[in-house]
C-alpha cells in the first residue's frame, strides 16, 4: 500500500456542522435525581454529549465530570453546570433531560426535538 503519499492524497472532507448555542431544560424528576447525584458539591458538571453509533446512528452520552478536554459550551440550568460539546451542539439544541422511574428501562432519558427516530432503548437516535 502506498502510504507515503497519504500526505498528498486528498483528505475526505468532514463537514463540521455549525455550532449552535444550545438551550436545554431539565424536568423536575431529573432535577431531583441530579440533585441527589451531585449532593451539595456543584463543582462537578453534567456533560451531555453525543457519540456516533447505536442502532440509529447517534448515542447520547451523559457523564458527571469535573472537567473535560472537549470543546464545550457551559450552561447553568436550574443551578446545575451543564457542558455540551460544540461538535454535537446541533443535535442537542432544545432537548429536555428527563428521568423515568421504572424498574426496567428506567433512568435518565433525553427528549430530543431534533431526532427523527429513536431506537427502542431510547439511547440512540437519528
Amino acid at each position: 500500500m502506498d502510504c507515503n503519499t497519504c500526505d498528498t492524497a486528498p483528505a475526505v472532507v468532514i463537514n463540521k456542522p455549525e455550532v449552535v448555542q444550545v438551550a436545554l431544560t431539565i424536568s423536575d424528576k431529573a432535577k431531583e435525581m441530579l440533585g441527589s447525584a451531585f449532593g451539595d458539591d456543584r463543582s462537578h458538571a453534567l456533560l451531555v454529549g453525543v457519540l456516533s453509533g447505536g442502532c440509529s446512528g447517534y448515542m447520547y452520552d451523559l457523564q458527571i465530570v469535573e472537567s473535560t478536554d472537549q470543546d464545550c459550551q457551559e450552561l447553568k440550568v436550574d443551578g446545575f453546570r451543564v457542558l455540551v460539546p460544540n461538535a454535537s451542539s446541533h443535535l442537542l439544541d432544545g432537548i429536555e433531560i428527563d428521568y423515568v422511574d421504572r424498574l426496567m428501562g428506567g433512568g435518565f432519558k433525553i427528549n430530543n426535538p431534533n431526532a427523527s427516530s429513536s431506537c427502542g432503548c431510547g439511547e440512540s437516535f437519528a
Binding site: M1, D2, C3, T5, C6, A9, P10, A11, V12, V13, I14, N15, G49, V50, L51, S52, G53, G57, Y58, Q70, P85, A87, S88
Partner: peptide
C-alpha cells in the same frame, strides 16, 4: 463523515 463528532478521526482517500 457526518458521524464524526468528537472522535479523534481523520480520513484520507488514497
Amino acid at each position: 463523515s457526518k458521524r464524526v463528532l468528537n472522535q479523534d478521526i481523520s480520513i484520507v482517500d488514497i
